[in-house]
Design a protein around this nucleic acid. Structure first.
Length: 892
RNA sequence: GGGGGAUUAGCUCAGUUGGUUAGAGCGUCUGCUUGACAUGCAGAAGGUCACUGGUUCGAGUCCAGUAUCUCCCACCA
């Protein structure tokens, strides 16, 4: 017997290792079939599971499990990302506790230390992913620093290098002084900053009282100025042509240059130019051949050239402002809000800094990736992201790929003492040019941006550059599911790598979902302390509840707001299913030799002569829900699918059909009892399978508890239900008329219950009900269903009447007809009259609208016939109803 | 500065190509420990679909504008 209460903790802990051990997540190219491959966005190896992962992976697992049940050859590739800067930061932090820096260990020992860390703690997130129920094929798990993936990185670098698509250059890059490395443009987060605009006077050389005033937000870079610039059209400064100004505090003379870059309206119209510390100034400097004076060190302190050696950059800012003031150079200070960049890893204020870095030329790589989306070879959902993608790709800038850290793929560029430089996927023994040995050869000290390995993920994980069966079979992968926040970082770059190295798209569909936010709509973050821990949700409610609730509340179009209470939806649904299963099990046992295994394969046979319309209604609705699920999942409308199965299981199956079936399950007719049970088993089995992709654990548990499959088998490989065949439907007499009739009957039930409640009839009291049916055929049908009808509305008797009763009594107008409650004692005729009047006014309102439409020449001539007929039918119906209500009212 | 998104019940959100009386969950109110389920059942209240105009026989849905909120991109010192 099933337990009275479902225990998700025990059940989830039991199934996952079993699935994994039995190879349920594993498919092989050799077994053929239609490939369905998905690569997981690899989480950082330092990461811990957050709600974003839970959402992202729920969507993927729904798709993957669905495809697997549809019989596809499925591969969901798991793995982690070595996350260069983030991981190095974590290990350095640990070192600091021991009072050491990475430099104290040296490069090799430090890297060794990171690997140790990875061995010990790197498994956290993949353990946590298992708690979610991800059906990832763990036998294929990859890490971006694996040997194979590293080989792919080296080959890609060398190929691009040899093609001339990788170059080294002295450029302004974003520099994080805390991480001590360059950052790519998109690794910098701009945030508003309440700063100042300092107005500083620069004397003009050669004239007594003439000076220019520049406005700057970063006075500490002043010692690095090598010019001031004005707009050539700015007449205020035309006289400065060929002049020099004196750089305050330094005594250096710097030229005045004329450049369109300067906005006349901003500040004073004069800009100080610091080519070594600002991207724009760098460009101006190039145009005017200005020297570049770097005044800072790697760690954000000032260097000797600044004259403030060793001082922190922000301290120096204060010091310089003070010195300027003392020297009489400071004109004024205005509060000013601008955007300043922060490191996306450690949030330190990023500096623009001149340095030598490696870059990838992106324009040639972007072209095929743009074409692919334009031609529809790859589609992006929701579609609106396409324009964002195009916009970025068409304005793409070169990618700074070198990082001045130690943890990562070291740049495979070697330099010989003879001056020769070349790229090699493996460490060279000698210089290919002069033949000198290893002692003369040095490797570039930098490592590659982490994304330089993850952009290869869709094929490097399948073994590339080796030719493997997996690569051949699963590439291009099918769907890529990720948050829109890494569209540029990752998705766009994978597109480029796919076309460049494989000659094919990496995936066919890109599915972008929103971000998970807190109840107030804020991003979840550690600093705000508003993060919900998925593991805590699993602990409190179960993984199934987490998954189902997320699926149900997440629309593809917008971000998702969650709070703890949202997960009750999934938990309650799981409980509902569990209890329905218990009900089925109890009734099956009463029958004796009933086996659910006979109903696991969609081969239901029914005796049509024993079928009731409510059975047919359920069968029809089952067909509908199967179709709805397929349609929803095909369109990646995960939420729609969740809603469809939720509604069907809860409302149609439990609320209506189970209640209806109770009567027959307790009746004398053994054949009928058995058939109802068969029907229940068949439909419930479909519910479990339809739902399994969303709630894998509870569905598997019930599938086994009821005995739909053998001990060793799994619902994971049971066929996904497609609904009943047309042959079955015809044999069973399923039709739209049946559907309409049962809906009418249900309205009668609901309406009568409502009438009882309004009339304050005690729930337990069986009453007599009079029904004046809308038509005779309905009366005939309802007569056949009279027992279940009586049970549903707790009626002692239901009497069909042909005319309205003379006595005043509570009544209600329904599609099925007019229902009366012949109650003992007095009824409030005044209240009753008011109620009727209200109803009449409402119906007359509708009727007026319909009459207006029907008498509108344009409507009648232009609207489709079906719509017009619909309105005509409605009009007749309304008129009859109003007449009935009027009659009732006058009878009071 | 450029671009996107959102605005529907007290709250969180559905609403597919325009077509009967706009839906769900939660919350609220009333009543139920009825033989699967109180993590439940039955019933009820609650909406000028942000605003203005347009297209249309017909608009929550399409178009334009306005307002508020949000996100992304961008080199204004």
């Amino acid at each position: 017997m099933m337990d009275k209460h479902y225990d998700p903790k025990a059940v989830e802990a039991k199934w996952y290792p079993r699935w994994e051990a039995q190879g349920c997540f594993h498919d092989d190219p050799a077994s053929g079939g239609k490939p369905y491959a998905v690569v997981i966005p690899p989480p950082n190896v330092t990461g811990i599971l957050h709600m974003g992962h839970a959402l992202n992976q729920t969507i993927q697992d729904v798709l993957v499990r669905w495809h697997r049940m549809c019989g596809d050859n499925t591969c969901w590739m798991p793995g982690t990302d070595h996350a260069g800067i983030a991981t190095q930061n974590v290990v350095e932090k640990a070192l600091r506790k021991e009072g050491k820096r990475r430099q104290d260990l040296g490069r090799e020992a430090f890297i060794e230390r990171v690997w140790e860390w990875r061995k010990e703690y790197g498994g956290t997130i993949v353990r946590q992913q298992r708690k979610l129920g991800n059906s990832t094929d763990w036998t294929r798990e990859r890490f971006t620093m694996d040997e194979g993936l590293s080989a792919a990185v080296a080959k890609v670098f060398c190929d691009l290098y040899n093609k001339g698509l990788i170059y080294r250059g002295n450029y302004i890059v974003n520099w994080c002084p805390r991480c001590g490395t360059a950052l790519a443009d998109d690794e910098v987060e701009h945030e508003p900053n309440n700063g100042n605009l300092w107005y500083v006077r620069y004397p003009v050389v050669g004239s007594e009282n003439d000076y220019v005033t520049v406005a700057t937000t970063r006075p500490e870079t002043l010692p690095g100025d090598t010019a001031v610039a004005v707009n050539p059209k700015d007449e205020r400064y035309a006289h400065l042509k060929g002049k020099k100004v004196l750089l305050p505090l330094t005594g250096r003379e710097i030229p005045v240059v004329f450049d369109d870059y300067v906005e006349k309206e901003f500040g004073t119209g004069v800009v100080k130019i610091t080519p070594a510390h600002d991207a724009n100034d760098f460009a101006v400097g190039q145009r005017h051949n200005l020297p570049q004076v770097d005044v800072m060190n790697d760690d954000g302190t000032m260097n000797a050239r600044s004259g403030y050696e060793g001082m922190d950059r922000f301290e120096c800012r204060k010091a310089i402002v003070e010195d300027l003031e003392k020297g009489g150079y400071l004109v004024k200070i205005e509060p000013y809000q601008n955007q300043i960049g922060h490191c996306y890893r450690c949030h330190t204020v990023v500096d623009s800094r001149l340095s030598k870095q490696w870059f990838v030329k992106m324009k040639p790589l972007a072209q095929p990736a743009i074409e692919a989306v334009r031609k529809g070879e790859v589609s992006i959902l929701p579609k609106r992201w396409e324009s964002v993608y195009f916009n970025w790709m068409e304005n793409i800038r070169d990618w700074c790929i070198s990082r001045q850290i130690w943890w990562g793929h070291r740049i495979p560029v070697y330099t010989c003492a003879c001056g020769h430089e070349w790229a090699s996927p493996t460490a060279p023994d000698s210089c290919p040019k002069c033949g000198a040995g290893t002692t003369a050869i040095t490797q570039d000290p930098d490592v590659l941006d982490t994304w330089f390995s993850s952009w290869l993920w869709p094929f490097s994980t399948f073994g590339w550059p080796k030719k493997t069966a997996e690569l051949d079979f699963y590439y291009p992968t099918a769907d890529l599911v990720t948050g829109a926040d890494i569209l540029f970082f990752w998705v766009a770059r994978m597109m480029m790598a796919g076309y460049e190295f494989m000659g094919k798209a990496p995936f066919k569909n890109i599915i972008l979902h929103g971000i998970v936010r807190d109840a107030q709509g804020r991003k979840m973050s550690k600093s705000l302390g508003n993060s919900l821990d998925p593991l805590e949700v699993i602990n409190q409610y179960s993984a199934d509840a987490l998954r189902f609730s997320l699926a149900l509340i997440t629309s593809m179009e917008t971000d998702t707001k969650v709070d703890m209470s949202k997960f009750e939806i999934g938990r309650n649904f799981g409980t509902k299913l569990w209890n329905a299963a218990r009900f089925l099990q109890m009734n099956a046992e009463k029958l004796g030799d009933f086996s659910f295994a006979d109903y696991a394969n969609d081969t239901l046979v029914l005796d049509a002569s024993l079928l009731h319309d409510d059975d047919r209604h359920l069968l029809l609705k089952t067909n509908h829900v199967c179709a709805a699920m397929e349609a929803a999942l095909k369109k990646y409308r995960i939420q729609e699918g969740a809603l469809a199965i939720y509604d069907f299981a809860w409302v149609d199956f439990c609320d209506w059909y189970l209640e209806y079936a109770k009567g027959d399950l307790n009746a004398e007719d053994a054949a009928r009892r058995r058939q109802v049970m068969a029907l229940l088993a068949d439909v419930y089995g479909k519910i479990l399978r339809l739902l399994h992709p969303y709630m894998p654990f509870v569905t598997e548990e019930i599938w086994h508890q009821l005995g739909y499959c053998s001990e060793e088998a799994s619902i994971m490989r049971a066929p996904y239900p497609t609904g009943y065949t047309t042959g079955q439907q015809t044999a069973w007499g399923l039709s739209e008329e049946v559907l309409a009739y049962v809906e009418t009957k249900r309205e009668l039930i609901t309406g009568t219950r409502s009438l009882r409640a309004e009339a304050n009839v005690p729930p337990a009291l069986a009453v007599n009900v009079l029904l004046h049916p809308a038509n005779s055929s309905l009366e005939a049908k309802l007569s056949r269903d009279i027992d279940s009808l009586k049970a549903a509305i707790r009626a002692e008797a239901i009497t069909f009447i042909t005319e309205a009763p003379a006595k005043a009594m509570p009544s209600k107008l329904l599609t099925a007809g007019m229902v009366y409650l012949p109650l003992e004692g007095l009824i409030d005729t005044k209240a009753e009259a008011e109620k009727l009047e209200k109803e009449i006014v409402k119906l007359q309102g509708f009727l007026k609208g319909i009459n207006a439409k029907l008498s509108n020449e344009a409507f009648v001539s232009k609207a489709p016939e079906a719509i017009i007929q619909n309105q005509r039918d409605r009009k007749v119906e309304l008129e009859a109803q109003i007449a009935a209500l009027e009659a009732r009212k006058s009878a009071l």
